[in-house]
């Protein structure tokens, strides 16, 4: 999947969803998880990921903690209370958007799936 704009628009939602499923994750782990889940179809670049993570941290959606792992310091990200709220809001918003998009792209097919 090469359309970076589509990924960019949903990056926050992707991060929030991944962090909801796994309590805490570090930057590299997020890129690898997305790659694994989409069989390499979606690749999150470092240039997009880290600014997004830092912005979400500044907005109070994520909190960080540092841990000593294998002779180095690792920074983990975790959802805050407002991050959890934002996640469910973003998921609803994305579901609605995908369903509406389906109506436009395939008017004959009733969209019956949920993200």
């Amino acid at each position: 999947m090469s359309n970076n704009n589509l990924i960019k628009g949903s990056l926050q939602t992707i991060i929030l969803k991944l962090l909801e499923e796994k309590d805490k994750m570090y930057g590299y782990e997020i890129t690898q998880k997305v790659k694994e889940l989409t069989s390499g179809e979606i690749k999150i670049t470092e240039g997009a990921l880290y600014p997004a993570l830092h912005k979400m941290e500044a907005d109070g959606l994520l909190t960080t903690e540092i841990e000593q792992v294998d002779n180095r310091v690792r920074k983990y990200y975790r959802l805050t209370k407002s991050g959890k709220k934002e996640m469910s809001f973003k998921m609803d918003e994305l579901n609605e958007f995908v369903q509406n998009l389906q109506k436009i792209l395939n008017p004959g097919i009733e969209p019956n799936f949920k993200l």
């Binding site: 570090y26 590299y28 180095r72 690792r74 920074k75």
Partner: peptide, 14 residues
């Protein structure tokens, strides 16, 4: 330190 540790960890893990 925050950025340095994050970048260093990213390099090493990758």
């Amino acid at each position: 330190a925050e950025i340095l540790s994050e970048v260093y960890d990213h390099y090493l893990t990758h």
